[in-house]
């Protein structure tokens, strides 16, 4: 079931001026419900422009954005409701924190929704729990926290709105490998616990291969591929043709195949490669035994 559908979306920056730039051209895509979708592309491929269309922060130059089959721009005055349903966490979201306490900052979204004080408190605790923030941190100033904690506070601020779709633009950018894994694992847990639809933007193939069910590939404002992770990574040669780095391990398998070792197509984790190699080794042993 498709949660969000983009129909023939184009977006042009400053049209009619010398600085005119086509950021997106003729994009058609589906974001599957109850799944984690990864959006991959180079810097300048239009990723960030695309995510801002999903919650109505910007209006497409042409084309339609459908949420549950309904055009989000049908009633432009009610676009705020769409923003509560599609939660967007921008790049480096820790720079948007402003309240005196973590608690108040997480409550900003729910407060804008006009909820009761009790409901807001409930949601804040829930969001803190989901993002792994300790209850004792809630009364600290957000400016006293570490970088990773600040980012989790910012994500909690969006999760507290209980969005049906959670979109995150480069949630792991600028974090060390451990911080990156913590955030991505947290997002996967969040998806499993709440059954929400999640979309993660990244340019790291490795992360996307490990954490996403579906993959969408953008290049130069155009859609290159979309599908399940294994389907997309099976076309690793096409991916490297558009200049995207496929996961290291997939590249290794590709190189092995070129040298005559019959590795499977569409390997993108070390575990898969290990199993495939073990299988090959086994069959080879059987063959040599046969000769003896």
């Amino acid at each position: 079931m498709s949660k969000i559908t983009l129909e023939n979306i184009s977006y042009v920056y400053s049209p009619g001026t010398p600085f005119e730039m086509h950021a997106l051209e003729g994009i058609n895509l589906n974001i599957r419900e109850n799944a984690i979708t990864g959006l991959i592309g180079h810097t300048g491929s239009g990723k960030s422009t695309l995510v801002q269309l999903l919650n109505g922060l910007t209006r497409p130059t042409s084309g339609r954005v459908l949420l549950d089959g309904k055009d989000i721009w049908q009633e432009p005055k009610k676009i705020k409701q769409v923003r509560f349903r599609v939660g967007l966490v921008m790049q480096y979201p820790e720079y948007q924190l402003f309240e005196e306490t973590v608690r108040a900052d997480i409550a900003f979204g729910p407060k804008n929704m006009g909820l009761s004080a009790q409901e807001i408190a409930e949601r804040v605790s829930e969001a803190a729990l989901l993002t792994g923030l300790d209850e004792s941190l809630l009364d600290h100033s957000p400016f006293d926290l570490s970088g990773g904690q600040k980012r989790r506070v910012a994500i909690a601020g969006v999760i507290a709105m209980r969005p049906e779709v959670l979109v995150l633009d480069e949630p792991a950018a600028g974090l060390d490998p451990r911080g990156r894994d913590t955030i991505l694992n947290m997002l996967r847990d969040y998806q499993q616990k709440t059954g929400a639809t999640v979309m993660i933007v990244s340019h790291s193939m490795e992360d996307m291969a490990r954490f996403c069910d579906d993959i969408i590939v953008l290049a130069h404002g155009k859609l290159v591929m979309q599908g399940r992770g294994h389907e997309v990574f099976a076309r690793s040669r096409e991916l490297s043709d558009v200049g995207l780095n496929i996961p290291e391990i997939s590249r290794l398998c590709l190189m092995l195949r070129e040298r005559g070792i019959p590795m499977d197509d569409g390997i993108f984790t070390v575990e898969q490669a290990e199993q495939c190699l073990l299988r090959l080794l086994e069959s080879r042993e059987q063959r040599t035994e046969g000769y003896v």
């Binding site: 923003r83 900003f108 804008n112």
Partner: peptide
């Protein structure tokens, strides 16, 4: 640029 970014981020949280 920074102002635009922050405005978008707060709008995404329902600021008006």
């Amino acid at each position: 640029e920074e102002t635009n970014k922050i405005m978008s981020a707060q709008k995404a949280r329902g600021a008006d």
